[in-house]
Computed example of a mutant assay.
Amino acid sequence: MKDPIKVVVTGAAGRIANNILPRICHGDAFGSNQPVILSLLDITPALPVLKGIVMELEDCCFPLITSIETSDDPKVALKDADFALMLASYPFRPGMERVDLLIKNKAIFKQQGIALDTVAKKTVKVLVVGNPANTNCLVLSEHAPSIPKENFCALTRLDHNRAVSLLAARAGCTVRDIDGPVCIFGNHSSTMAVYAHSATVKGKKIQDVVEKDFFSREFEPLVQVRGGAIIKAKGTPSVFSAAAAIIDCIHDWMVGSEGRIVSMAVASSGKYGIPEGVFFSVPCKCEDGKYEVVDLDIDPSYKEEFEAKLQKSYQELISEAKLAEIY
């Protein structure tokens, strides 16, 4: 067994957290030999709910849990944090525009960023889930300047998992049969670019397995609007698929992706023509709590169109950053 790490979950009384917490406690996120001090943060009215959640987790008798703390104060919950999972954000409501969501969430992530900078360990890793995730992550990191930018990540693993699953369904195979990179680039929005042109199915090029029109015209839009389609079908946003993607992202980042390429929205560094200053989803490989951005050889027949899509997503992120008063 390793020494315990302190894991903070914000929005801990919410539906996604309810799907995540047992898996964290079971070792699915940080490994089966990693003890955890769990710190649950939510707003004051949710504290009674947190008390009930703690009782349930205690009743599960998870051997990896050292202790469980609850709070409505970010500076208390985030003190000495090793990992912070930022689920809490102002929710999208009917009639709202994306700009409204940005403005509402700016205050939340500014406060949490200041708390991180003040009380968390300088080695803390931070995964932002609350939307708009890329720009919320930027706001958070800007207000926690003493923590390295590479320690922050916004979630695009759900889009990644959706892309792999949709490809497998169309190819008539399992997700295990999809090989080669399937990656999400850019913003977690309708401007994201989905790259799968170099993927294979049981050794065959993906273009030879799925029909041309699906791959060139239908596939990317299906991934882009999948979240909305789920809301339309069930009346509520993705919950357990989002929770699964969060666990996947944490596990691969902290434990390792075992050579697999995964999608992570990380601080841009100039790769793929994207200047520094935004959090941009790119292909990564992970090992021992660190990620490395992978330089893919983009299919030459698609490269010009692909680069134009990346720039479109980048410009959207710059616009969001300006609305959040970062630039």
Rank of each mutant, 00 (worst) to 15 (best):
L127R: 08
V76D: 12
Q112K: 07
A168V: 06
S263N: 11
I246N: 00
F83C: 04
I5H: 05
S269I: 09
A267Y: 15
H188T: 12
E258A: 15
I184F: 04
D82N: 15
P74F: 11
A233Y: 00
H143W: 14
D42Q: 08
E211Q: 10
A12G: 05
D299M: 06
M96V: 01
P132E: 04
Q224V: 00
G228V: 06
D213R: 13
W253K: 11
A133T: 10
K6I: 08
P221N: 08
L87Y: 03
M1S: 15
A144H: 09
R157Q: 14
G235I: 01
T135A: 04
F109C: 01
P74A: 10
L78G: 02
E258C: 14
V126H: 03
A324T: 04
H197A: 11
A242G: 04
G228T: 06
S268T: 01
D72E: 13
S216V: 13
S263G: 10
N136E: 09
E287M: 07
L296R: 12
K309M: 08
V128G: 04
P74G: 10
C286P: 12
I103C: 10
M192N: 07
Y291S: 11
K106F: 14
C249D: 12
G11Q: 07
P275Q: 10
D100F: 05
G14V: 00
A308Q: 09
I274N: 04
V126R: 04
S301N: 13
A193G: 02
E307Y: 12
A29R: 01
V99F: 06
V7M: 05
C153E: 07
P181C: 02
C61D: 15
V209A: 03
A144I: 09
K303I: 09
I184C: 06
L50C: 08
D179P: 00
D252T: 14
K51S: 10
A77C: 12
E287H: 10
G180T: 02
S238Q: 10
G227I: 00
E218A: 13
P145D: 04
V76K: 14
N136T: 04
I178C: 02
